[in-house]
Design a protein around this nucleic acid. Structure first.
Lengths: 268, 268
DNA sequence: GACATTAGCTTACGACGTACGGAGTTGTCA
DNA sequence: TGACAACTCCGTACGTCGTAAGCTAATGTC
């Protein structure tokens, strides 16, 4: 299931997102008078880091407040001083996981090369933190690092003369394509390691199963049958690696889009 | 969070998917000798229907085995005779929610018109059952109704001369684009009804918040700032409706893709 | 030194998915 | 016809989750 982020108090979430990571953090609020009470033993960043490590290792399903607390040597409830709820924590994790990507891309090689580079970086990040793909992209909150990813793409599009009306559709299309492809890749990779069977093996099992279960498949779904029977394209990766395969499909789709941007009429 | 389907026993899931809904259901297994024990009081279809109704009404988060059982006048555990687990139920719901879409599309109006029609039907379905977008698209199991949706698209692409190597990327791109856009639309619609504030209002609130929180936003993210400041395109829907708006962006992205298919070089 | 404020954390609650196993019902076969 | 085995149904219970409430103790200000 997709995790829907951005469902806590938006104001609080945004403050956390931008205060914790922005260089303007100090400047934002006037200096807070030192508060009474015990010193804080944790930091939001430590919590985020622990949570990300957990999600990377065991997946989003295993991410629980108790587990994060335990990893930090305390209890689940100790986290609630720093983070209003698990949802906000997920938002913070999401933004943090986008940190460190390039702020801008070299445009000397042309638009297509730059977009491919940008795509490759994002793709790599998604596959390094596959739980990112379980956090709804439609969430309303944008943190500084996500914003930076968007900004770098806009820089490419603007710098290579993409007409203004085409920018929005292109941006949304790119994100959806990359996320979708990465999700497919991550899922097949996870299935392979979880079941121990290779992706190829898995598919043959599945299709023999389908053949006995639905003997008239080819009659009912002729085009689908033809598609699965078709040989892979000549320039596809030869060793059967589902991740490389998906990436290849993504690149092809990207090329379609980029071709349209170059040759096509400007969309409305 | 995204719900990951397809994680139960694949064989069992596929048998359920194809047996329950396919006309070849009886033919599949040799006649099962009548089993002893009480008559079954429920049916898988009734359970699926109840679960879908629940998800439609209250969202995926509120979908629980207890709730489904209650709606059918029994307990949660009563369902486990028919369905191995909640995950399989979600898979069955997912497939069932794709039932009744056209099996083929009129190609007389050309490829673009047919693809737009197909897209529109799927879009409508997604917005009618927004929980569909929380079920991972990367799940490995395909039921008969999902298969039919794929088949009708393949019919369009094949019937209008899309070159074979371009088919796979086009299909995956189309699904990702539509799902992504529909997710955005569904989310903003849900946010509007949940908070009572209009989408427009919501964004202005958010941006004033951002402005005070991050005063140097425009310097740090010039392109993003310029984009939000840009006027909407002239042919955008005039009354501010986030769903129509997202749909418009989707159509523009579709046009990009379709343009590429027509004019572009065939991708590898 | 009194006191307001705050962090840390224990306990507890209600929800979840579902394992387990008993009770009751039915077909088959001796 | 009676015994039995197979099967459905489902109540109970377990372990998990997010987090509300509230106590304890530490710290700053006056």
């Amino acid at each position: 299931m997709t995790v829907y982020g951005g469902q806590g108090d938006p104001a609080r979430t945004m403050a956390l997102l931008w205060r914790a990571h922005s260089p303007a953090a100090e400047a934002t609020g006037p200096k807070r008078r030192a508060a009474p009470g015990p010193k804080q033993g944790l930091t939001v960043d430590a919590i985020i880091e622990a949570a990300i490590a957990l999600a990377d290792a065991d997946g989003m399903e295993k991410l629980s407040m108790r587990a994060v607390g335990e990893r930090l040597g305390t209890s689940a409830m100790a986290l609630y001083t720093y983070v209003p709820s698990k949802r906000e924590l997920v938002d913070l994790m999401y933004d943090q996981a986008h940190a460190g990507l390039p702020h801008s891309y070299d445009l000397a090689g042309g638009r297509d090369a730059a977009v491919h580079a940008w795509t490759g970086d994002l793709w790599t990040r998604y596959l390094a933190h596959p739980w990112l793909l379980q956090v709804s992209f439609a969430r309303p909150v944008l943190g500084p690092h996500e914003q930076s990813v968007l900004e770098s793409l806009l820089g490419i599009l603007h710098g290579t003369g993409v007409p203004a009306p085409a920018v929005r559709p292109t941006v949304s299309a790119l994100f959806h394509l990359i996320r979708g492809a990465a999700q497919t890749a991550a899922e097949s990779r996870a299935a392979a390691t979880a079941t121990g069977t290779s992706d190829e093996q898995w598919w043959t099992e599945r299709s023999t199963q389908l053949a006995t279960l639905v003997p008239d498949f080819a009659t009912r779904f002729p085009h689908s049958a033809a598609l699965s029977a078709a040989p892979p394209p000549a320039d596809a990766p030869s060793t059967y690696d589902p991740v490389a395969h998906t990436r290849h499909t993504l690149d092809a789709a990207l090329d379609l889009l980029l071709t349209a941007l170059t040759k096509g009429r400007a969309p409305s």
